[in-house]
Computed example of a mutant assay.
Amino acid sequence: MAPLPDTGARVRRFTRAERLVHRATGWLMLLCLVTAACLYLAPLAQLVGRRHLMVTVHEWSGILLPAPFLLGLLSPAFRADLRRLNRFAPYDRQWLRAARRRLTAPSVRPAGKFNAGQKLYAGWIAGAVLLMLFTGLLMWCGGLLPAISRTSAIFVHDCLAWGITFVLVAHLRKAYEDPEARLGMRTGSVPVRWAREKHSEWLPDDTSAPRRRSVD
């Protein structure tokens, strides 16, 4: 499919509240990962030192990690996007089949406001953060659940931390490869041309306004 002409028209993709939630969550996640690296990787631990400070920052950044999400629930636009992320449409399954076959043409990868990969990522990272918070609290407050040993909590916490690291690196790589998507998260708007190419089920054919649909 030939690229659509760039008319310069733009469409709102994210509100200020949604961008703030994303940014705050990203910074807290980065703090968690950096301080974890300073605690568990010997060369970094020796270079940085100040273990007690690293432990304190790591614990509180982890505890505060759900806070941006909870505050974001005050925004109707944020809640609407959560509903979109939580629903799979028939074209999402088509997107996944095309991704498995490494078909990259937009015409064979239909998507709503969020594609199927973004929906899977959002669900995975939400579950991972909750499990990290739970195991972190078990490590911090010994005896909270006597049936679960602290050693088991540490094992799950550490394994999941590596999983989150790899998934976040993949997420950042995808964002790096799509400057228009990064611009949308930074400014809140994206070109209509990009939206129709990458998220064909989000915009109708005859207008630059997003579709008002219960599932997209």
Score class of each variant (00 low, 15 high):
residue 5 P to V: 10
residue 6 D to Y: 15
residue 9 A to D: 15
residue 11 V to N: 11
residue 13 R to V: 10
residue 14 F to K: 09
residue 15 T to S: 15
residue 15 T to E: 11
residue 19 R to E: 08
residue 21 V to P: 01
residue 25 T to P: 10
residue 25 T to L: 13
residue 28 L to F: 09
residue 28 L to I: 09
residue 35 T to E: 03
residue 42 A to W: 14
residue 43 P to W: 04
residue 46 Q to G: 11
residue 51 R to E: 11
residue 51 R to G: 04
residue 53 L to I: 12
residue 56 T to N: 09
residue 56 T to H: 14
residue 57 V to H: 13
residue 57 V to K: 12
residue 60 W to M: 11
residue 66 P to S: 10
residue 67 A to I: 15
residue 69 F to T: 01
residue 70 L to W: 15
residue 79 R to K: 05
residue 80 A to N: 11
residue 82 L to C: 08
residue 87 R to A: 00
residue 97 R to Q: 15
residue 97 R to H: 02
residue 98 A to S: 13
residue 100 R to M: 05
residue 100 R to I: 07
residue 104 T to I: 04
residue 106 P to N: 07
residue 112 G to M: 05
residue 113 K to T: 09
residue 115 N to D: 04
residue 121 Y to Q: 09
residue 123 G to A: 02
residue 126 A to N: 03
residue 126 A to D: 00
residue 134 F to R: 13
residue 138 L to R: 13
residue 139 M to C: 09
residue 144 L to I: 03
residue 144 L to A: 06
residue 144 L to E: 04
residue 149 S to F: 05
residue 160 L to A: 09
residue 161 A to W: 12
residue 166 F to Q: 01
residue 168 L to T: 14
residue 178 D to C: 01
residue 181 A to W: 03
residue 183 L to W: 14
residue 184 G to K: 12
residue 185 M to P: 00
residue 187 T to P: 00
residue 191 P to C: 04
residue 192 V to H: 00
residue 194 W to E: 08
residue 194 W to K: 10
residue 194 W to G: 05
residue 202 W to R: 12
residue 204 P to L: 05
residue 207 T to N: 14
residue 210 P to G: 03
residue 210 P to R: 11
residue 212 R to Q: 10
residue 215 V to A: 02
residue 215 V to M: 06
